[in-house]
Amino acid sequence: MAITDRQTATLALAHALSAAERGLPVFPLSATKLPALRSPHHGDVPPVRCRGECGLPGHGVHDATTDPSAVRALFAVAPRATGYGIACGRPPHRLIGIDLDIDTTHGNDSVAALRHLALEHLFTIPATVTVLTPSGGRHLWLTGPPGVTVPNSAGRLAPGIDVRGAGGYLVGPGSVTAHGRYLLATGTAHLAPAPCPSALLHLLRPPPRPHHPTSRNSPARQGQGLVRFVRAAHEGQRNTRLFWAACRAYEHGFGDALADALTDAAVSTGLSAQEARAAIASAARLTTPRRTA
């Protein structure tokens, strides 16, 4: 099925405009769930760390806007867009996305894991906007309070539970991807995103940085463990292990320092250096909050 036809692109824009009207910053996505616009700095040497300051489109989540005219302009230069992303962490909603993946291979039940966390930490999972993903997972939309930054994370709460916070984005309902369509769950379309329970918000906030770099859990020691974890990957695990290890490194503040070692470890398992660097860059984007002026 061709999913880049004019009707799909028109529907994607319509859904994006509807979300923008509700105060949700949006930007166009391709069928791969990645930003539909190529960076204007692609190929620049050294890499330019621009987050939209240049004024040109093509900065992914940093292009996100609630201005209808700006939304139309973004989609006009992204004719292959089949969906839209919703930037998390931005006012007025300060959206937090709880991404519950389905992993039948390893038997991880992320929904049960979230319920267990709720029982353990004495909070109730509120009725809120819920988006069903093509893989059978779901996204729960919650809102955060002013002055609180929730970082992106992958599997830190529990296996199969990813968090989309500041600098991250959720695929909006109505988007079409190579694997199917994102849909609002029955009975949630009329709901507003519910406030994040305070106990869950505490779990979502970043852990304190260690104060003793020479301790057993020092960045250097943790980094060696992550490199060994990547080096031990077998075929079929290489990208997953590398991405997981890079996320952990960036969450603990030494991702850039470990990037070369992780790349070398991934190359030793059979990945190309280009594939390894791309996976590490994705981990950096996912776990690094957007800087504000």
Rank of each mutant, 00 (worst) to 15 (best):
S153I: 02
R216V: 09
L132W: 04
L114R: 02
P289K: 03
N217W: 10
G167Q: 08
A220M: 04
V111H: 14
G83W: 09
S215M: 04
P207W: 06
R248Y: 08
S268M: 07
R49I: 05
P91K: 09
L34S: 13
A12Y: 15
T130H: 12
A194E: 04
A166G: 03
A276T: 09
Y84C: 04
T292C: 11
V131S: 12
C54Q: 03
A257T: 15
Y169G: 00
S39T: 14
A87V: 01
L140W: 12
D99V: 00
L262R: 10
D162N: 10
L201P: 03
L140E: 10
R216G: 06
A259V: 01
G255Y: 05
G144R: 08
R231Y: 07
Q224N: 08
R291A: 12
P79K: 05
D44E: 14
R205V: 14
H211C: 03
V129F: 12
S268W: 04
T128C: 11
W244V: 00
V150T: 15
R164P: 01
I102M: 02
A158L: 06
H15K: 10
V48Q: 00
C88P: 05
R90P: 01
P126E: 12
A265C: 00
H252D: 13
D260C: 02
S69W: 02
D67L: 03
H190T: 13
A233Q: 07
F123W: 13
P173Y: 12
G89C: 02
H59S: 02
G180Y: 14
H116D: 13
L24H: 15
R238M: 05
P213D: 11
G253P: 11
L13Y: 04
L262W: 14
R94M: 06
V227Q: 12
Q224P: 00
P126D: 14
T188E: 11
G225L: 14
R205T: 15
G97D: 10
A279D: 09
L29F: 00
A246E: 04
T32I: 01
D67F: 00
I280S: 07
E120L: 11
A265P: 02
V77K: 12
S272V: 06
T292W: 15
L262M: 10
R6D: 13
E21N: 13
P35L: 01
A220C: 06
C196A: 14
E235Q: 15
A36C: 07
R205P: 11
V150W: 08
V26L: 01
A265I: 01
